[in-house]
């Protein structure tokens, strides 16, 4: 029997959904309007996508015993790049290429996110700067870069092309859910069909031993922070597309913390080693489910953060072996 590290968060997610199913009329109902699915469940998944995307990259970073605090800021950069390129397209976007300028702009924005991640990776992998410090740099400076790109203004993007990414649907489901599914499959394949995941876990579990068996910790760190930046880039364009604007100050604000919590709640230890992508996704959805529940129940939004914190504490306690040991001893004593 395999003990999945995310069993408690999945159980808690089930409880939250069950609670809603009983007390919120029509919570589980999904209806089709204009060829598109509507319902609270769809809404939870849709709204969870930015944090869930960040959590995918964050899970790998945390597995190397690191952390990436800059992903929120990278989202702002990515959004600013995408909106900026669409509003004031440079020549190469206007002439030729035969591609949708919006698609090119968004791809470049994702690339910008990956480059930011690469920058983190170089600082951490090659210059051995501690992850908290290195990514704190970009967490702060990144918003500055985004403000430079937007000249300190909120760039609004007219037209529907830009908004289609976040607001549009494919086969009835909102596009962000498809994007998340694609990224999750890509990360799953990358980490489990190749040995990349094993090397990440080994390197996080015991870096010295990893060196002794020939695992290149530098390139590995470079890769995970770049992947984390890539995730943030994708999350950034979704967030910008959602509000049809690039907001350098508020895009992805504090979302890095949500991502870290999602990873922790999903059963990945902050000390590095084993990680669970499924757990990270469940963690992100759980967080959003709690938020949505509070909103639909009409409980004041001022208690949202406190209830979220209680949920995190509950899951972490359930995951803690020493907590179980204490309970066991209480019972036997």
């Amino acid at each position: 029997m395999k003990a999945y590290p995310w069993r408690y968060s999945l159980a808690l997610l089930g409880l939250v959904l069950l609670f809603n199913a009983i007390f919120t009329p029509g919570f589980l109902a999904i209806e089709i309007r204009d060829g598109r699915l509507f319902g609270s469940l769809i809404d939870i998944f849709n709204r969870a996508t930015p944090a869930a995307l960040l959590a995918l990259g964050m899970a790998l970073v945390i597995a190397t015993a690191g952390v990436d605090l800059s992903v929120g800021a990278i989202m702002a950069i990515s959004g600013a790049v995408a909106a900026g390129l669409v509003v004031q397209p440079p020549d190469f976007l206007l002439h030729g290429m035969g591609v949708q300028p919006v698609a090119v702009a968004m791809s470049l924005a994702v690339l910008a996110g990956a480059v930011c991640g690469l920058f983190n990776g170089v600082l951490i992998g090659f210059f051995r700067i501690q992850p908290v410090v290195a990514t704190l740099l970009l967490m702060i400076a990144g918003r500055g870069v985004a403000q430079l790109l937007t000249n300190g203004q909120i760039i609004t993007v007219p037209g529907d092309d830009f908004a289609a990414l976040a607001i549009g649907t494919t086969l009835g489901l909102p596009n962000p859910i498809w994007i998340l599914a694609a990224m999750a499959l890509f990360f799953g394949a990358l980490t489990r069909l190749t040995a990349f995941g094993l090397f990440v876990e080994a390197s996080g579990d015991n870096p010295t031993a990893a060196h002794y068996v020939g695992i290149n910790g530098k390139s590995l760190r470079l890769a995970v922070y770049t992947l984390s930046g890539l995730c943030a880039g994708v999350a950034g364009i979704i967030a910008a597309s959602n509000i049809k604007a690039a907001d350098a100050n508020n895009a992805g604000l504090y979302l890095e913390l949500d991502a870290i919590l999602a990873v922790a709640v999903g059963g990945t230890a902050m000390t590095g080693g084993k990680f669970s992508l499924v757990g990270a996704l469940i963690g992100a959805v759980l967080m959003q489910a709690v938020t949505t529940t509070i909103l639909t129940r009409g409980i004041g939004t001022e208690v949202t953060l406190i209830i979220k914190a209680l949920v995190v504490v509950a899951v972490c306690l359930l995951q803690s072996p020493s907590f179980h040991e204490t309970l066991r001893r209480r019972r036997t004593a």
Binding site: A195, L198, F199, E201, A202, D205, N206, A209, A210, Y212, V213, G214, I215, A269, G273, K274
Partner: peptide, 18 residues
């Protein structure tokens, strides 16, 4: 030497994998 949290099997196979 060991990767404490990885399985015995992964610990045994890692060099062949690298």
């Amino acid at each position: 030497g060991i990767f404490p949290n990885l399985s015995v099997r992964d610990n045994m196979m890692i060099v062949a994998q690298v």
